[in-house]
Write a protein that binds this DNA or RNA. Sequence first.
DNA 1: TTTTCGACTAAAAAAACAAAATAGTCGAAA
DNA 2: TTTCGACTATTTTGTTTTTTTAGTCGAAAA
Lengths: 192, 192
Amino acid sequence: MIDIEKAREEIAEIARDIFAKFGFKKTTMEEIAKAVNKAKSSLYYYFQNKEEVFQAVIEREANVLREKLQKAISQENTPQGKLRAYIVTRMKALKQLANFYSALKDEYLENYKFIEKFRSKYDEEEKSAIIQILKEGIDNGIFEINNVEMTTQAILITLKGFELWVFQGNTKWTEKDVDNLLEILFYGIMKK
Amino acid sequence: MIDIEKAREEIAEIARDIFAKFGFKKTTMEEIAKAVNKAKSSLYYYFQNKEEVFQAVIEREANVLREKLQKAISQENTPQGKLRAYIVTRMKALKQLANFYSALKDEYLENYKFIEKFRSKYDEEEKSAIIQILKEGIDNGIFEINNVEMTTQAILITLKGFELWVFQGNTKWTEKDVDNLLEILFYGIMKK
DNA sequence: TTTTCGACTAAAAAAACAAAATAGTCGAAA
DNA sequence: TTTCGACTATTTTGTTTTTTTAGTCGAAAA
């Protein structure tokens, strides 16, 4: 009752490495069970099915990222700084994750839909994080945005594009790229 | 000698519909041949292999798009207008194409790499088109951009994100979305 | 000379089937 | 409350055979 969550945590933690190496499909419950020193059927005491184990792994990863983002944002005191910190931190973390889950990366390119199923859950979260920053900027009289919702969407879409860019391995992005992007976002390209 | 191009055109034109229906993999040379009223082996007189037929189909499609873009741009006389026309036209055309090549769309999501192989050829083209617009804007003293190359990339990345958004069918974008995006691109979100 | 085609081959894909692996259930025991 | 072994029902894998398909070639038609 009190330990069930702990056990779930432990399983997820260990399963993480296996999923990372073999991807979702090629990871078996047997393997996970062995690594946790349990019988396979015991896993089903903690999780309903394989997908739920995977879900738990992702959730943990999301928590780590969430904290990183929170921390990065809180260390900045201007909305611009926060936005920059958010994007840079996010990109870096995603790169790391893509690196760690090397097998999953292949599955990503091959079976885009599958991963998206899990990701979409966090889209809302991301949205509100950015909205919050934008609103703060507006309240402080720093930003001038007539449609926060749409602007947020524009930013998210751009981040998605960035992600794809990185995932394809076409280019190695730098913070400079992000700064350039932000320069446009902040000031636009029109001559003042 | 003079007709060979005409024949290629005809084959590509007819193959287009078949590829659209069945995608690349499930389209057979036999089918195409039948539709063109030729023996399968005759196709190989005009094209080296199946991929070249597909290539030709894409090339035609690209030409159509190119012309549309050219026309749309030339009808505008401000750099802002041109940029807007470019993006709107591009998005509309892509949407239409995605609709027409319904089978290909599935292949796109499943086998992203394959389609990308053909697309990447046109990335350069797209890049220079946008650079040209931006430079014109700079020359006219309308835009103020310190790194055209990077700004162009930022725009392209954003368009890629937009594309993904649309392809997934998550949202039906409107011109309003584009305008909002452009509003940011032109003026940024900072208070003046 | 240019274009078409039927007959052919080699490779790939599909079908059929058996064998193995795996996700998930269940009741009983620790 | 937690663990597990034995079981089942699906999937996956491996193998062999058959069919389909991409691509070649030389000969005939235009």
